[in-house]
Every structure is written in C-alpha cells, then in structure tokens.
Nucleic acid binder design. Structure first.
Lengths: 248, 248
DNA sequence: CGCTAGGTTGAGGTACGTCAAGCTAAGTGG
DNA sequence: CCACTTAGCTTGACGTACCTCAACCTAGCG
C-alpha cells in the first residue's frame, strides 16, 4: 500500500465533519489530536462491534464503508445506517453502554478507537466540544428519521435515489467524492439490506435508475449524471444533514 | 378539570425517565426543578413545533401524546417517533438549530418549554446532567433504529405488535399504564402514518391482532391480554430502551 | 478449466394499496 | 325526540409494488 499516514492526517475527515457544523478552536482541535487513538483495520464483512456488547471505547471510521445492522430471527437483515470516513460510528455507545445493534465493515475498513473515559473527560472539561460530539449523535438521529420516511413512504426508486443524494452530500464534506463520482464497492445483496428490499427488486430498481440516465454504478463507483433530477426524484432536502456552521 | 399541578409535580415523569437510566444527585434534581419552565397546552392536531423553524427553546411533554412527522409532496405523511409524557420531545433542537420535521400533538397535550440558553448552561456547569440529557437523544435514536428495522423488515402485524410492546414499556416507567392498559386515543388514520401503512390495511391488521386475542383497543384504551405472545410476535427485545441504571 | 460470488431475467405469488360503499356513534339544530 | 351531519371504522373488489423461486449469465481466480 502506501506509507502509514500520521494519526493527525487520519483525523482530518472527522475534523472536516465537525468544521462543517461549527467553529472549532485551535485548542479543541489540539485536544482531539492529542487524545490517544488506537487504529485497527477490518476486512469486508467483519463485525467491528458486536450486538449486545458493552464497549469501553468508541470507534471513529477513517476509511471504508461501515453500517449498523440488526437481524430478525428469520435471518432477514436491516441496516439502519451507512457510515463513511470521518463518522464517529458508535459515539452513542458512550451514553448507551449496551449495543442494540452490530457495526459491520461493508468494505475493508480502517478505524480509530478512543476510550470512553477520555471522551467523558472531554465532555467534563470542554463542554462546547462535548456538545459538538453529541451533535454528531443528533445528526445521525436526523439521518435515521429521514430514512424512516424513506422506508415508510418512498417507493423503491425514490428510496435509492435519496440514499445516493445523501451519500454524495456527506462524502463531499470529507473529500470522499471526485467530480460526480464516489466509491461504493458493495454488493447488491448488501444494498438490499440497506433499502429494506429483496435482492431481485433492488437489482431492478438500480436498472431503472440507470436507464433513466440519472446515474451509473460500475466496478464499485457511483457517478451521478443528473444531480438535480436525482434530488427531484428523491425529494431530497439537505436540511437534516445540518450542513451549516452554527454555535452549538 | 383538576387543580393546577405544581411545576415540580409535572416534572416527575421526566425525572422518572432519567432515573430509569442513571442515578440523579439531589443537586441535579434541584437544578432541573429550579429551571424556568414555561407551560403551554395544545389541542389535538396542533403543531407544537413547525418544520424548518429555528426554535430557541426545547419542549418537554408533560401530558398527552405527540409525534414527529414529515410529509412528502404527494401528501403522504410518515411519523418518525411517538412521544409520551416525560419525553424531552425536541431536546435535539438545542444541537441541530433547524427543525427537519414538525412536532405534532396527537391528543391534547401539555408541554413545558425551557430556553436553549438554560440547557446550554446546564451542559457547561453540570457535565454529568448534560450527558444524561444527551443520553435521552441517543435513546430516541435507538428507538428510531428499531423502527427502521420494523419498517424495513417486519410485516404489518409484527410492526404494530412491536409498537404496542414499546409504548407499554415506555409508559410503565412514567406511570402511564394501569394494569395491562394504557390510553391510546388516536385515530386509525394517525396510526397508519406511524406504521407506514394505508388506513385500510392498518384497520385489517388491528382486527387480526384483536382476533388473535393478544390485545384489545376500545374507546381510546389499549389493553394487552398476552404480553408474552405479543412480544414473541414482535420479536421485542427491550435492550434498545436502555432500561438499566448505569453511570453515563 | 472449473469454481464461485455476484448480477440478471422470467414467471408466478403475496402483502399491501386504492377505490368506493356502507356502517356506527357522537354531536347539532329544529 | 328526530333528522341531519360528520368523523371515524369496516368491508369488498380489484390493482400493484414488491417478494420468491429458480434458472442462467458473467467476471474473476486458482
């Protein structure tokens, strides 16, 4: 591969997500960078955090795609969130203590772990930074609310369109897009578990989206050909992503 | 009606939700009770907080049922959360600043408002209490994840069963159940918007649940006849509600 | 060359939606 | 006390979005 990046560089996408929502002081940035991060890699399909476990660390994704997943007894799986680099995947583990879902690596992933004790100390000594971290939890919840709307009321095609609109917007913040394209190297099987659809119907929905000329998806790369048309189809309104800098 | 309850008494359900998850010091309780709460009532159907508004207060529900709702252009509505007394309905508004959904009174509601400035000050001066408040936001997110599983993978009947299991468990904490019954005075139309189903199918699903002897729902009251059977049908696992006292 | 994981296609089934009508109970005005 | 209205519940008939099963196709890989 390439030379081992410095921890400092690996935190950049995370700092970018924060900086997209509020103003970070140099001292706050330094605090985050000075913290003790432990890096680990996971192959595609690996379980990063097990369901019902009681983690003592939280996990920041610095590379790859991950997801939160729950499974019914009959084996059907539903993914409730897709995470990209810069996402503090299980920050809420600090508050919830017991996982009610698993965190899975959808692609090979690189993650940085930080002790809950350190995070708790940050919320004690840096209240604003603490609020900023919890804002990320609230934004995750916001994304989930929108996904509830998708699952409950949007048809398959609009649902998929909305997912791609959202991923593009989120990846843009952290430098995860190049031009109109972003890496999305997952199987249609996995995508079906995100969309709450069967594999077959997922396949047909993708074909329909491709045929309408809104996007392509080849060899693990999605290219959006018509941003406006896609957003129109999805009724995409980015308010819920909180892409504005405000004192929080 | 009855005599005006004291603010102190009206906060009890809220303190109970907190106390179900962590240990509150007397000083923390006093801080919450001493805060300046403004009470308002809303008729059924009223908009408690408007979509896309920028609230400067957060809203604690002290009576009635409320919900978060989003609407598509074609008029279809999806409710993403049902709130009961003691719920800090839009605590996340403190962090998100712009509402990405509306908060609606499903029944006549009584709510207590508190300035964001006060909440922010609490997170500055009482870090543990602040974390506890944000834990409520994280639990809301947890509930939403479970609802994503319901909408994506559970069939109508299990979805409805899960809703009733959850409401019973949550209402139990705040003294909102009597025996096996709780008040649920909403129309099937509204219920359909919670379940992401049509009215007609919602009606048939309810009838099927009733016929299977698991519960009754008459004149605004749900009575669960077979808790175990209902939980079995719903695959209900209360882990996600965080009903355990832990240092957070 | 054969194996495998993933993508694609067709045929038929089911859970759910839509439309339209009739029912019930509560409220309103005469 | 009785029309009349209205909101909500119920039922039937029919339509459709999505599911299931099963086959085949394709590309990568040892």
């Amino acid at each position: 591969m390439c030379a081992e990046p410095t921890p400092r560089a690996e935190l950049e996408p995370f700092l970018a997500t924060l900086a997209a929502r509020d103003y970070l002081s140099d001292e706050e940035i330094a605090t985050l960078q000075a913290a003790s991060w432990h890096f680990r890699v996971f192959p595609a399909g690996a379980e990063i955090i097990a369901d019902h476990s009681k983690p003592h660390q939280s996990c920041l994704l610095v590379g790859g795609l991950a997801a939160r997943g729950m499974t019914l007894r009959n084996g059907e799986r539903q993914l409730s969130a897709v995470h990209i680099l810069g996402d503090f995947v299980d920050l809420h583990g600090l508050l919830l203590r017991v996982m009610d879902h698993a965190v899975l690596a959808l692609t090979p992933c690189r993650a940085a772990f930080i002790d809950h004790a350190v995070l708790r100390e940050i919320t004690n000594t840096h209240p604003h930074l603490g609020r900023l971290l919890f804002t990320l939890v609230a934004i995750d919840a916001s994304i989930q609310r929108n996904w509830i709307l998708s699952l409950g009321r949007r048809k398959a095609e609009a649902r998929l369109a909305h997912l791609f609109c959202e991923l593009f917007a989120r990846l843009e913040i952290v430098g995860g897009v190049s031009g109109d394209s972003f890496a999305f190297p997952i199987s249609q099987n996995t995508l079906a578990d995100i969309l709450g659809l069967s594999i077959v119907h997922t396949n047909r929905t993708i074909q329909h989206l491709r045929a309408s000329g809104l996007l392509t998806w080849r060899s693990g790369t999605v290219t959006i050909l018509d941003h406006e048309g896609l957003a129109e189809l999805a009724e995409f309104d980015s308010t819920y992503l909180n892409l504005f800098r405000e004192e929080r």
